[in-house]
Design a protein around this nucleic acid. Structure first.
Lengths: 237, 237
DNA sequence: CGAGATTCCTATACAACTAGACAAGTGATA
DNA sequence: TATCACTTGTCTAGTTGTATAGGAATCTCG
């Protein structure tokens, strides 16, 4: 008669309470010490239970911060040609962008090459997180040449939107000059942002946007969480 | 879970950006608070990373003023990697291929779905390696419906080329109906074929080819070695 | 049955990270 | 000059991650 392990019963209890809505997605669970006290077991036993929930995708943990109820993990289809947001909206997801940083700095050699800049030229670098239903989907970094758009940071500050800020700067429309795709592994910080493990696969998409006159406007690089995202290309787009 | 401490990963990121010339000697780095926001960590973690850079002599800090790139920055060696650029459109028609297997079997549910087959329908499965400069670039698996092409194996045996064999079967031309891209990790066997390490990143491309009448001809799946290959999307794709 | 291996759980210690608060120093401005 | 917002330095406290060690129950196989 195989007795059910305590950690399993704890895991069942917790996932039941989560399913009952006792803890909503994003909520913090009690600390391991509190749970250990509540169930009258060692912290390690609680950890075993929690790691089972992490494995199942029910919760996700952040060292030093706590364990949090995860959003429902699903696969997000993303079209290439269509705008990222509209695509997710169509799929019934709530798309969000979270700004991580917006700085002005010197351009790297690769950025100079792609944007056609001179050695001392500066760029605006915009980094952020793309989320769907509060689930991180991708990390992006956009780089804009600073010379043609000196007021971009201010305009971005005011409107909170890059597209709006670009419009203010006179760029009504732009098109994709090229896209390049490759696969990489998540670094520790990338994994942290995307709430995945270090070494998980990422789909990296690089692209250059140019205005109607062919002048480079934006050099973008996006890292998609490989196990959450599928990039779809269809002939119709 | 994080094999690499986050502070170390941050330190690597920052020293890489300094090496890339984003910040020149004497330049001020973003404030600890800004970096903490960008990397999504606590300020203490950023401080840990910065103190490692100070230790290494890359930057120096002044209380109340900021962190500055040291005058004698240690430029670090850039590993020159040869990257193979591959157009997604042409991906199915690589010059040098190595046949791993050519079998006829029942279709899987996914294959039935994509090719529009009935439960008992059979398919020809063609697996192989794509090579460039005698180096394995990708693993591919193509699946053809057996009913329209009963003689494909024989024709392939004779000509050694799938395109030629298809032509014999009356398919003069075909086009790509859709492509789906995602990132995965290399399994042990995949790693062996591609001569990479298990757990290295792979770029997985799924695609369906249809003939001029819209009839499915080939369902393909290709795993590109992420370290070696960049997929380029032209505007027509 | 019995010995060894495996699983389950406890216990301890330390490293990594978060959180908040306050002191000390800088730089710009009135 | 005095002030004030901002930045770095330091401190305390709490939480999760990992490593090690060991005891007890259970499973496996000769």
């Amino acid at each position: 008669m195989p007795r059910t392990p305590i950690w399993k019963s704890i895991a069942d209890d917790l996932s039941g309470e989560i399913a009952d809505g006792l803890y909503l997605p994003g909520d913090k669970l009690p600390t391991e010490a509190q749970l250990a006290a509540r169930f009258g077991v060692n912290r390690h036993t609680v950890r075993h239970a929690l790691s089972a929930l992490v494995e199942a995708g029910t919760v996700h943990t952040r060292r030093g911060a706590g364990a949090f109820v995860a959003q429902t993990p699903t696969d997000y289809p993303i079209g290439k040609r269509v705008r990222f947001h509209q695509n997710l909206r169509a799929a019934g997801r709530m798309p969000t962008r979270q700004v991580l940083s917006f700085t002005t700095r010197l351009a790297s050699p690769e950025e100079r090459e792609a944007l056609g800049l001179k050695p001392d030229d500066q760029v605006h670098a915009y980094e952020g997180l793309s989320l769907a239903d509060a689930q991180p989907i991708a990390i992006f970094r956009s780089v804009f040449p600073a010379t043609p758009f000196p007021d971009l940071p201010a305009a971005f500050e005011a409107s909170g939107s890059v597209t709006a800020a670009l419009k203010d700067a006179g760029v009504a429309d732009y098109t994709r000059a090229w896209s390049r795709l490759t696969a990489t592994l998540a670094s520790a910080t990338q994994a942290l942002h995307l709430r995945i493990a270090e070494g998980d696969p990422l789909l990296r998409s690089d692209g250059l946007n140019v205005d109607t006159t062919g002048q480079p406007v934006e050099l973008g690089r996006t890292w998609f969480a490989g196990d959450r995202v599928t990039l779809t290309l269809s002939e119709e787009d």
